[in-house]
Amino acid sequence: MSEYTSPANVPAVSIKRMSKSFGDIEVLRDIDLVVNKGEVVSVLGSSGSGKSTMLRCINWLEEPDRGTIHIAGQRIGINEQAGRKMNNKELATLRAKTGMVFQGFNLWPHLSVIQNVMEAPIYVKGMPKEQARVIAIELLEKVGLADKHDAFPFTLSGGQKQRVAIARALAMSPEVILFDEPTSALDPERVGEVLTVMKNLSKEGYTMIVVTHEMEFARAVSDQVVFLEKGLIIEKAPPAKFFSNPETERVRKFLEISA
């Protein structure tokens, strides 16, 4: 699917010893995480544990204080050859290789559904309009919104908005898609349609990092489950082990409460 296919042995995302503070509060401490191509990683933890911040550091929406992050083998945030921080243009080039789906959808309200999907391919990648349109139509079909091309975001339900946002992220053929609590702002009866789309994506081999509260999804879809507590990764395991035989008391408690 990806256009700039990097060598298969290079991980899609690799984070080493990443830390981040807001003022005096240390929100992330020595995070290490490797996400291989085609893997789905679910990030769990109570609110305030640093899950979203971790995700937002990966595409440099938040700047970590220490540590390194590589996207498909390329360091983000620091231009290593020049030995300085990346400028906006360099950052943009790397961010184009990651897609992000937000809790609040963040669709651009002045653009129609299909324009939302076409916008970045045209104005970031310089793709011809016709080609972007073909891709957008295909992606909207994939998320089940083929009939909504020309609708404006304000006419859509939350679930539909989020599916458009997923199509928008896919349109850039990203190396990895970052999901920041994609179903938390939805009505309960709309959660399923978004999770179904995400499940299908995982089957197609997309690399995904998903911050979520949906235990069932994490159990059924992920290759790895990561549990964050006070900015630390305290458990990292395949779902079978994580859900049936967690190592820490904290995770056991968490699973009990969530069950």
Binding site: L107, W108, R168
Partner: peptide, 21 residues
Amino acid sequence: REQKEAALACGMTSRVFFRRI
């Protein structure tokens, strides 16, 4: 601010974001 983040996350530069979004 969220819309700006969505634009940056897609790899738009600040200029493209201002002009297009």
